[in-house]
Each structure stands twice: as C-alpha cells, then as structure tokens.
C-alpha cells in the first residue's frame, strides 16, 4: 500500500489570504517626488510594492499590512502613512 506522508499545498496558495484587512495605516505614494530608487519594493516584507506601467511604485492594498517600513526607508519622503477609514 502506498503511504501518503505529510501534507502538500499548491505553490503560492498563501495569496488566498488577503492580509490587507490587517492594516490600520495605509501608505500613500507621491509620484511627484519619487526618484524610482526601488527601496520601498526591496524592503517590503510582503513583496507587495510594484512598479506600474508608468514606472511608478505602488503598494498592492490587498496584501499591504501597513507596517510603515517603506515610509521609513524612502529617501525622498515620498510615502506618507494615513489612518485607514473603516
């Protein structure tokens, strides 16, 4: 008899879990002052900051937990944390 050992899950299945609902503060990006250094995207623990078609950085609010790390590392102070209205 074949024995199934352990559990398996499909790659990246965690995406089903929309962690954006945890957020208390939301990062608001200002494309005017951004120098496109990419630091925000590099350090986001969720990997949820992406460059859009215009080359501008924006957070995926489905997953952003509002930790504020991107705001802290931004050299141009282009990111502001704003209280979520719920």
């Amino acid at each position: 008899m074949a024995l199934g050992v352990g559990c398996a899950a499909p790659p990246g299945k965690a995406r089903d879990n929309k962690t954006g609902s945890w957020r208390v503060f939301r990062p608001v990006f200002d494309p005017e002052t951004c120098n496109r250094c990419g630091m925000c995207a590099l350090v986001c623990p969720e990997g949820c900051v992406h460059e859009n078609e215009e080359g501008m950085f924006e957070p995926d609010l489905d997953y952003c937990k509002g930790c504020g790390l991107c705001e802290e590392v931004c050299p141009k102070k282009s990111i502001r944390m704003e209280k979520e209205e719920k």
Binding site: G12, A14, R15, D16, N17, K18, T19, W22, V43, C44, P45, E46, G47, C48, D60, D62, Y63, K65, G66, C67, G68, L69
Partner: peptide
C-alpha cells in the same frame, strides 16, 4: 520574480519575512 508570495501571516514589519523574500 517574486517567489515568496504575499498573503503569509508574519507580523507586519517582520524581519524574517523580508529575509525569506530576499
């Protein structure tokens, strides 16, 4: 390519989560 997907349940700002991505 992002091979460590969003939706994980680490605390916001978790250092180990960033290390996993990197």
């Amino acid at each position: 390519v992002e091979l460590f997907s969003a939706g994980h349940r680490a605390c916001g700002g978790c250092g180990p989560a960033l290390a996993a991505r990197l």
